[in-house]
Design a protein around this nucleic acid. Structure first.
Lengths: 218, 218
DNA sequence: CGAAATGGATGACATTTGTCACGCCTTTTT
DNA sequence: AAAAAGGCGTGACAAATGTCATCCATTTCG
């Protein structure tokens, strides 16, 4: 039995309940504070640290060793997925719950690959968050129902090059610029775009970029 | 003295404080619930109804006549700005606070035109929300500092047609499709796009759409 | 090793875009 | 009423884009 479990046990003796220690990361200050308030209402959950970007989050998690780490995906500098991956690499055993706006199968796949135990959408009723945290803390896995089905749906058909090129094209850069930015020739860029367009069933670069973005393939 | 003021007065006698009655609208269930939790912690603020889209919100506001109506902008069917405009049209006198992710001057301008008393970004520390609500309730105006400066900065240079055309072009539709969708000729569509591109200082339709979106001109 | 896949480049060609200079009606303004 | 401005269309042309077939090096793999 490890120290953490022992600690849980002690708390159980006192209050017949373990307090779940949580670190929370989310870049929008107001949402961060609000979620913390929401969780702190629950008697058995305690938010012991908050972070507004990936770096802070990683630091806080390593410093506090919480039971559960809840994080948004899109944050400055290091995404929540990156932090999750890093925690997996370090074998910290800390459970990770992703909470995000985006129902993109690509994100879910990456989250699971990074060892996340939960993937929830901000669409979900607020009440269910605490339950999800409890379930994850017990070692269960919680995936937002809407995604659980489709989940492993389709795989990203794009190659690295196609992804890079499509990303830039989606920002309105003309082929020539993209070419020099990536050290390729103009024709090659157009070839990759053509490939991507047909793979995605789009009819031009912009539509292709939109589709890819929506699937989380960027 | 109206009944509402009388009620406030009674509360004042009890707790030396008036309770500010709030209706909250936000499409992401989790954020909605979390914000409600955050506000309910404050002794002098009470969330009396929640809504997840513009229609529900309007209905709830008209039914409950709260002191302050807090709303996100981007919601299904009717945006927060639309609801604010409707409340102004009906001269309800209910104070409106916009809370959004987007620091777009166009949104701010539209919000003020719709009679909003507050425009806050979700970036803001959560603690300040309650204060903002109190200040707005007292009749003050609260604009997120970052925006207050730039605020009336630039005006939307686009005509209605240019806006429509640009919106569709930004989704990747080719000129021909846009033309038939709007009942225009192909050449005319390209003319509008050309105009928009030069007005916005862009170098193609995609970039133009990006710029317009960022300014909130869509 | 030889064969096949991979990443990149060319060249050619049809389409789509972006730009301009006009022309034609309605509204507005004066 | 004449003039100016707005909304829409045409035609023409250069530039950018999308598609293909083909070619050349590396890797990778049976």
């Amino acid at each position: 039995m490890n120290p953490q479990q022992k600690e849980s046990l002690r708390d159980n003796l006192k209050a017949n309940r373990k307090t779940i220690r949580v670190v929370l990361a989310e870049d929008q200050g107001m949402v961060l504070g609000a979620l913390a308030a929401l969780l702190d209402i629950e008697g058995d959950i305690s938010v012991i640290a908050q972070a507004r970007n990936g770096d802070e989050a990683l630091e806080a998690v390593l410093a506090h060793k919480p039971d559960v780490f809840i994080t948004d995906i899109e944050m400055p500098h290091m995404s929540g997925l990156d932090v999750a991956a890093e925690l997996k690499r370090r074998k910290t055993g800390i459970r990770v719950v992703i909470v995000t706006t985006f129902a993109r199968s690509g994100y879910l796949r990456r989250a699971l690959e990074a060892g996340a135990s939960g993937y929830l959408l901000k669409d979900m009723p607020a009440k269910e968050l605490a339950d999800a945290v409890r379930r994850v803390h017990q070692g269960l896995r919680v995936i937002h129902p809407e995604l659980a089905t489709e989940a492993w749906g389709e795989m990203d058909p794009l190659t690295d090059r196609e992804r890079q090129v499509l990303r830039l094209a989606g920002e309105g850069k003309p082929s020539g610029d993209i070419a020099s930015e990536l050290g390729l020739s103009d024709g090659t860029v157009r070839n990759y775009l053509s490939e991507a367009i047909s793979k995605l069933g789009a009819s031009n670069r912009v539509e292709a970029a939109r589709i890819a973005r929506n699937k989380g393939w960027l």
